[in-house]
Computed example of a mutant assay.
Amino acid sequence: MRVLIALGGNAMTGEDGSARVEDQIAAGKVAMEAVADLLEHDIDIVLTHGNGPQVGNLLVKNEVAAAVVPPVPLDWCGAQTQATLGFVLMEALDVATAARGLYRRSAALVTRCLVDADDPGFSRPSKPIGRYLSAEEAAMLIEHGEHWEDRGEKGWRRLVASPEPRAILDAPAVRALVDAGFVVIANGGGGIPVVRGADGLRGVEAVIDKDLGAALLARTVDADVLVIATDVPNAVLRFGTPDAEPLGRVTIARLRELAEEGHFASGSMGPKVDAACRFVEEGGQYAVITDLDSIVNAVTASEEEREGTIVVPN
């Protein structure tokens, strides 16, 4: 069995959301303990991860240093965080597997994701990233070509495009490494967004949704199961109300219907639900949305005993 595990951004920060170096290392160790538990079942694993807090840190550095050095573009931020988090996860996985007497090599791959140059998102940047700034601070970054918007009392916020992921360009390398026995960490943050032009490929200022990128990577590397690991054991209907209801086994059709009814927030659970549906619609056996503590059960338990939100064909 081949499984793709998508680690949410919370899996790479402290419990309070802090992204200090020591917090990220500690969080990586926790996540890789769960992955090592799954490796004991002799399963091929591909890992991907969010990078929002890490990119956020780089953007702060951009802002602070904008008057001294040019800001680093978003595609560079994606590449840097893929490499850094890949290193952190590899180190943590080596420790976790050694403690279990396992020998599984790991590899981190800086991964590009193709998007359309004419994607509507580029003409209407809508995804807010980074912190709020004053008008004066934002003006300096606007001079460097960034798109900022006045958000009233809170200040100015940067908006970027979030185009649809079309192809994982480095998927053949991922497949080759998995076939050779490696646990591969790839496509972090949804992949480095690139477009194809007359002169070849070039990176662009955009952010790809991590969960949609994970679903595309899972299909591209022929994964059987997609596990979207988050900080809750299930997707929840009527979240935050007295009538909240954890969602268990559900068909694509029913889950799509629930999404259209507005049960899943667009900035949190919505993309996870969409990604799970896309993966199964394209031929995956099933997808799971659950927390780290439940991923072994989600992959190895019988159909009747699986925990989490289990998305199955209609």
Rank of each mutant, 00 (worst) to 15 (best):
230 T>R: 06
2 R>E: 05
38 L>P: 01
26 A>G: 02
249 R>K: 11
33 E>A: 08
149 E>P: 00
70 P>Q: 10
230 T>N: 03
274 D>V: 15
275 A>Q: 08
35 V>I: 13
290 T>W: 01
71 P>H: 11
29 K>D: 14
250 V>T: 14
255 L>P: 11
98 A>W: 07
49 H>L: 01
174 V>Y: 08
200 G>W: 00
90 M>T: 11
129 I>F: 10
285 Q>C: 05
250 V>W: 01
239 F>R: 15
116 D>A: 15
207 V>S: 05
275 A>Y: 06
159 L>W: 09
226 L>M: 11
168 I>C: 07
49 H>V: 00
259 A>R: 15
20 R>C: 11
165 P>Y: 05
254 R>P: 07
96 A>W: 04
83 A>E: 10
30 V>K: 14
230 T>P: 00
5 I>A: 06
177 L>R: 13
299 V>P: 01
291 D>A: 02
78 G>L: 00
28 G>D: 08
283 G>V: 06
164 E>C: 15
72 V>K: 14
90 M>I: 03
154 K>N: 10
104 R>S: 12
189 G>S: 13
87 F>V: 02
195 V>D: 12
148 W>M: 06
307 E>N: 06
275 A>C: 11
122 F>K: 07
228 I>Y: 00
249 R>N: 02
58 L>C: 05
90 M>W: 01
235 A>R: 03
24 Q>V: 05
258 L>W: 07
137 E>Q: 14
221 V>D: 04
170 D>H: 13
95 V>S: 13
203 G>L: 01
233 P>M: 07
95 V>Y: 06
42 D>N: 15
76 W>F: 14
62 N>T: 10
305 E>V: 05
149 E>G: 01
251 T>G: 15
155 G>Q: 09
62 N>E: 12
169 L>C: 05
57 N>W: 02
310 I>F: 10
130 G>S: 05
265 A>H: 09
